[in-house]
């Protein structure tokens, strides 16, 4: 369980997060939606400790990050997996070395144990025969899958994905979305995803948080999103004609 209370974050003059509360539960895929520049990435990075909030608390399993000792923080990092917006694979390492990296950092497994685990997660994300390639030799969708494999290789309790399907075709997007949801369910992970993708919202949004101007404007499920009359949500989600029609049909039924 991940709880966020009253998070503020600004960079110089610009305040990006202005008091956000949220709760994320195990086994559930929660989505953060909002316009480009609304602070989704900053929010996620703050949860991970990459940005220190100006105010507010973040608690993992009931313990605030502020009250953790260095050793507890290290322990926590082992439980966190992150898929960055641009994949953030290490260019100088092969796919296999990339995925093995967290294992080397956090465990004392032997090389063959690590290789087994790497093979297992690469299969899990449907990537075969790419172990010895470098990230630059892979397509965007394959890179995303390697990034997911690297994020889940240590069996994290928390998984964060920053726009896991930006720049992917609709079909690959759905494959990635379903993959994340399956893993979340299978290992009871607390998963938080940033996205602009309305397909994802409809497909896997068990909980949706809409950010606007640094605040949580709306929260609900993918069913609620059809019914809501919150103007900001409606104008954001139903900005395309296709979704306007989908909504119309849904409301008529």
């Amino acid at each position: 369980m991940l709880e966020v209370k009253g998070i503020y974050k600004s960079f110089g003059e610009a305040s990006v997060l202005k008091g956000i509360d949220a709760t994320f539960e195990p086994g559930k895929t929660s989505l953060i939606i909002g316009q480009s520049g609304s602070g989704k990435t900053v929010f996620l990075k703050t949860l991970l400790g990459l940005h220190i909030p100006d105010k507010g608390t973040i608690s993992y399993d009931g313990q605030t990050t502020e009250s953790m000792t260095i050793e507890e923080k290290r322990q926590l990092k082992q439980d966190l997996g992150m898929v960055f917006q641009g994949s953030a694979l290490f260019d100088s390492l092969t796919v296999e070395e990339n995925v093995m990296f967290p294992l080397k950092m956090f465990t004392n497994q032997s090389k063959s144990e690590m290789l087994d685990r790497v093979d297992f997660v690469l299969k899990r994300v449907n990537l075969k025969d790419s172990n010895h390639k470098f990230p630059a030799e892979l397509s965007g969708g394959m890179q995303k899958r390697v990034a997911i494999a690297r994020a889940i290789v240590t069996n994290p309790k928390y998984l964060f994905c920053d726009e896991p399907n930006s720049g992917l075709d609709p079909r690959t997007s759905i494959v990635i979305d379903n993959l994340i949801q399956e893993i979340t369910d299978e290992y009871q992970i607390t998963t938080v995803i940033n996205t602009h993708d309305m397909n994802s919202v409809m497909e896997i949004g068990e909980k949706i948080i809409f950010l606007k101007d640094g605040l949580k404007e709306w929260e609900g499920t993918s069913n609620d999103i059809f019914k809501t009359d919150n103007e900001a949500v409606v104008s954001f989600v139903y900005s395309s004609n296709l979704f306007k029609k989908v909504r119309k049909v849904y409301l008529e039924e």
Partner: peptide
């Protein structure tokens, strides 16, 4: 610098490095 702008440095920090 490339590691910085492509978030590879953030990725290292997330892994506790």
């Amino acid at each position: 610098g490339t590691m910085r702008v492509t978030e590879q440095i953030d990725a290292l920090e997330v892994m506790g490095i």
